[in-house]
């Protein structure tokens, strides 16, 4: 297991490095003058900036160095959590990013809990009641989740619960330490919309895997030995398909921790994804770099752990790789 872990960790390195290159290149290929924006000038003031100030900032940003050197400096700084200054807010990028992390974490955790609470029992129930109305309902739910875009579903939910019924606030975020009840009220709609989307995703994988398992040799063997169908399903199939569930939950965790751009936008929820969209509108590239890097590294790292768990649950994998 240790060998597998190390091997898998080593594999992660080139991916992460390539991702950092891609993210760094962002700032090279974008139009615009980083010096002007760092100086707090709009570009139509270009003639107003004194030369010596411009040159000083040019050197401070290391723009006089060759691009690969710039990359190394940038990477070094980034590893220490220094992503430069936000062009819009003129405060360290890391401060802006960190201020948005809690909101996204709360939303991500809440939707993940909702997703698991819906998908796992529903999946098991549908599997046990194979080919009955429960099963069909699960199929319908999966199709609904895949076909209906979250932001549209979110709008309908806002329309019903916030506008027509007036039960819930339609937007925003209140920190839990400020007022826990209002925190929950603000969280419930975006978390449910996002959670149901993820639930459909989990259920879809679960069902494919479940059907896969049903056709495995061991099931046939068990059935041939005369074990009753229900028992086979409970004892063998569900246990095995749990591996798939863990995997898909893991993959979705990465997605949720990065936040959902459309849902955070729809609900004016001040999380990381919303920050990303705002930074994109404003072409605040240091912020974009930091958020994108965070999201991508999150995916890579979570995938790493998912693989480890998967290998732990399924010994065949780790021997095959090792």
């Amino acid at each position: 297991m240790i060998r597998y872990t190390l091997l898998r960790a080593l594999q992660m390195i080139p991916t992460v490095l390539l991702v950092t290159v891609a993210v760094f290149v962002l700032i090279i290929i974008i139009p615009g003058d980083p010096v002007l924006s760092m100086l707090g000038y709009y570009a139509d003031d270009v003639t107003a900036v004194p030369h010596e100030i411009y040159d000083r900032m040019f050197r401070e940003l290391r723009l006089d160095r060759p691009i690969p050197i710039q990359y190394l400096y940038w990477l070094g700084d980034a590893l220490q959590g220094d992503f430069g200054k936000s062009v819009v807010f003129r405060v360290p990028v890391i401060d802006v990013v960190v201020s948005r992390v809690p909101a996204t974490l709360y939303l991500g955790t809440a939707s993940l809990l909702i997703a698991i609470a819906v998908a796992v029992p529903f999946g098991v129930w549908a599997a046990v009641k194979n080919d009955t109305w429960v099963d069909h309902l699960a199929s319908g739910f999966v199709l609904f989740g895949v076909a209906v875009p979250g932001f549209w579903f979110g709008m309908i939910v806002i329309l019903v619960f916030a506008i027509y019924l007036g039960w819930l606030p339609s937007i925003g975020y209140v920190a839990p330490q400020e007022d826990f009840l209002r925190f929950l009220k603000h969280l419930i709609m975006p978390a449910t919309v996002l959670g149901l989307d993820v639930a459909a995703n989990i259920l879809r994988f679960q069902r494919t895997d479940f059907l896969d398992q049903l056709h495995q040799d061991y099931v046939r063997t068990a059935r041939a030995k005369g074990l009753p169908g229900q028992l086979v399903i409970w004892k063998h199939v569900l246990k095995n398909s749990l591996i798939a569930t863990v995997t898909v939950v893991g993959l979705n965790t990465a997605r949720l921790l990065g936040g959902s751009t459309v849902i955070e936008t729809l609900f004016s929820y001040p999380g990381l994804s919303r920050l990303l969209i705002e930074a994109i509108y404003a072409r605040d590239f240091p912020v974009i770099q930091a958020v994108v890097l965070w999201m991508v590294v999150l995916v890579v790292v979570v995938n790493f752990f998912v693989d480890l768990i998967y290998a732990y649950l399924n010994p065949r994998i780790r021997y095959a790789t090792a």
Binding site: I277, V292, M295, V300
Partner: peptide, 15 residues
């Protein structure tokens, strides 16, 4: 390809 896959699809499209 691994690096591309690491990017969430929608994020990549946005950028």
């Amino acid at each position: 390809m691994d690096a591309i896959i690491a990017f969430p699809a929608r994020l990549l499209a946005i950028v």
